[in-house]
Amino acid sequence: MACVPRFRESGFNRRPFGCHRYDVYSPKLHRQITLFGRHALDLWITLEASSSVLSYCERPIIIPGSRPVRAFDFWVQRAEGEELLVLMRNQVQKSSDNEEPASDIQSLSGTSVEGIPIRCIDPGDMTDHQITLANWGSIIRDLAAFERFIPEPLCNDVKARLDTRKSIAQLQSELSDFDASTVRLAIFQLLHRGEAVCSELATHRLTRNHVIARP
């Protein structure tokens, strides 16, 4: 059954004081999104990379009682249900107009808003996954730019050849009728959909030697 997203666009777009702005394209949502801060960018990459995430929305609603006003970082829809994600901040910062510092975000953990459970994310938990984030960041950028050029029959052909584990280079060699970069993109598409896996994405920077397998 197709997922009908509860939230389709950001409900709060004020950039937090001192945060960098990132404008990115989501292959999963097929739209442009804006993120504030590196931690939000990293969390977005994990949502795009996870095949269990059916849909999501950046900054969907305001955190009740937050001062300065702040939104939840993401609403996420999975097959097993919804959740609201909020990034804990390592430091309490004041906004440019001298509002009071934000309340303790961690106290929201285990509560809910509009019947949606809240989960707090410690940005430090993502620092141990920098190779994964870098690899998936590269994959997502390539899909954002070139996904429309990937022939679906090629994706099916790649998937049919995964009865045994094969490297990206082997698949490119076997599918030499196609440009090697297009074969690589088809592999990325399968990884993004969860129709193929590559354990080395978590341990080594992405190369043609990475081994692709069926889930």
Rank of each mutant, 00 (worst) to 15 (best):
H129F: 13
L133M: 02
V113S: 02
L54I: 01
Y25C: 01
S10Y: 08
I45N: 00
L171T: 06
L133E: 01
S50K: 01
L43C: 05
E152T: 12
I139F: 07
H192Q: 11
E147N: 11
G115A: 08
L191P: 10
H210V: 09
L43I: 01
Q93T: 13
L201P: 09
L85D: 02
D42S: 10
L35S: 06
N156D: 15
W75G: 05
I105E: 09
F74A: 02
H204C: 10
R59L: 04
T132M: 13
M126K: 00
A180N: 05
R6N: 03
A102Q: 11
E147Y: 06
C3P: 05
G194M: 06
E82P: 07
I187H: 07
E147S: 14
L201S: 08
V24N: 02
D104M: 05
N98E: 14
R67D: 14
S95H: 03
D177P: 00
R21L: 12
S66G: 07
S199V: 14
S176V: 08
P151C: 03
A144E: 04
S173M: 11
E83A: 10
S66E: 09
S112T: 11
T182P: 00
C155Y: 01
L84I: 06
I150L: 07
H39S: 13
L41H: 10
D122I: 02
H30G: 03
D73W: 06
S95P: 00
P27E: 06
L162W: 08
F17I: 00
V86T: 12
I121D: 02
R70Q: 12
A186C: 06
L191Y: 09
R161N: 14
I131W: 00
H210M: 11
F17E: 13
S55Q: 14
V197R: 13
C3E: 12
I150V: 15
P16D: 07
P151D: 04
E174M: 14
S52T: 12
D122F: 07
Q91P: 00
I187W: 09
Y22C: 05
S199Q: 15
T182A: 04
L206N: 05
R21G: 02
